[in-house]
Design a protein around this nucleic acid. Sequence first.
DNA 1: CGCTCGCTTGAAACGGCTCAACCAAAGTGG
DNA 2: CCACTTTGGTTGAGCCGTTTCAAGCGAGCG
Lengths: 234, 234
Amino acid sequence: MSDCISCENTNCLIKKNLKNPLIAKFLDEKHTIKCKKSQQFIMEGAPAHGLFFVKKGQVKVVKTGIYGREQIVRFAHDGEIIGHRGFGPGKQYPIGALAIKETLLCNFTNDVLSKMLHEIPDVTFDLMLFYAEELNRSETKVRKFAQMTVREKVIDSFLYIHRKFGQTDEGFFNIQLPRKDFADFAGTTEEQVIRIISSLKKEKLLITKGKKIGIANIPLLKKEISEHNYFLDS
Amino acid sequence: MSDCISCENTNCLIKKNLKNPLIAKFLDEKHTIKCKKSQQFIMEGAPAHGLFFVKKGQVKVVKTGIYGREQIVRFAHDGEIIGHRGFGPGKQYPIGALAIKETLLCNFTNDVLSKMLHEIPDVTFDLMLFYAEELNRSETKVRKFAQMTVREKVIDSFLYIHRKFGQTDEGFFNIQLPRKDFADFAGTTEEQVIRIISSLKKEKLLITKGKKIGIANIPLLKKEISEHNYFLDS
DNA sequence: CGCTCGCTTGAAACGGCTCAACCAAAGTGG
DNA sequence: CCACTTTGGTTGAGCCGTTTCAAGCGAGCG
């Protein structure tokens, strides 16, 4: 079993409030779940049974859209929250979630969580701030999807992945994703992503080795999208 | 001055918690502001000085995007919150807001609000739920923008406006908006909106009279977008 | 060894945007 | 009160970016 005291995820909401004496009793009600690669642990539309924290691993959050087209909402790793949108009585999860690689999850049921939030205002406040930030990100994304060209959206996705997962010593992303996933995240097609990767390679902005992708020149790549876009973060 | 006790906006966060004895002292610190038509009361990028509630009126929330293109984030009317994304120390408003017609606003400064949230957990909890809902809406919108055709996006906007503002006895929207605003909301151009209005009129799904627009057949119009789209709300 | 899966490229078709001209209604000033 | 300007709405034509379809390639695996 995983205990929160020795956990290293300082960005975790629970970890932050660990000094609060009220929180201890809730920690006993936490479940730890182990997911294999590609295993789905939240089904879209299923009744919500609580909130997940990524203890260690990588997760993608997906949503089926029009024509059954898959949209990747976001990626998550250590310390991050998943399933927070299923919170509330009788709610269903509006998204699905699956492990990209072997992943350890902490789970609180809705009941436990609800009690915790009503008893510990600090946690509620932190969770509120988290929602507010997510909202920011999401609204920025709306703007991006509405106004960016496909090339810009793809570049933006690469920068997001790099910012979030970092790179290996060789300069490749610390996460393995098929081209299709980049497409589903950027909101375009696999072919477009491939074409753009090809041209970015020619422009010496990207490097690839098999399925692995890395950014060759971050400032220059950033410039590609920040030229006209005053300020977009996520 | 406007007092909350006689206020009719039962969906208002404050109104809901009015029975709470702790809330009274904060109400004295509320400011009431009157806005004329087209008057802007939140400037994008300005330091945030608090949260607004619409007491009575109609407001549009805008954001300048790429190439200075204006994006309408959402519309708001009686009882709704505006400027909630500027919450937090040293924050700036990420959006602008202006009155569509004469509007009455209630304003709490960040200081007052912050104290209130820390002292009254119920309000924090309600605000958290509000953020969660907004997040839902926003993420749905991401999906729409990513996958709908322009025609579908425009139809969807009309349904949103109708759902939110209702219609007059003659069957026109209870809000007056230029075509350009529909375009900025749906994420397209004025010309597209006009073309789609024209064809929807021919299909007997829409009626117009000058600038006024109304839906002739709601179920049929809904069917236009729900055909392939499993479930999209907002 | 042959099969499958993911990646890659080209060509064609489509949708949406831009530009430009035009019109109607409303507002303004002599 | 009429001519003039402005504002918002409307339509058509052409262009460009993106998607779709189709075919081919290479690596990995049973």
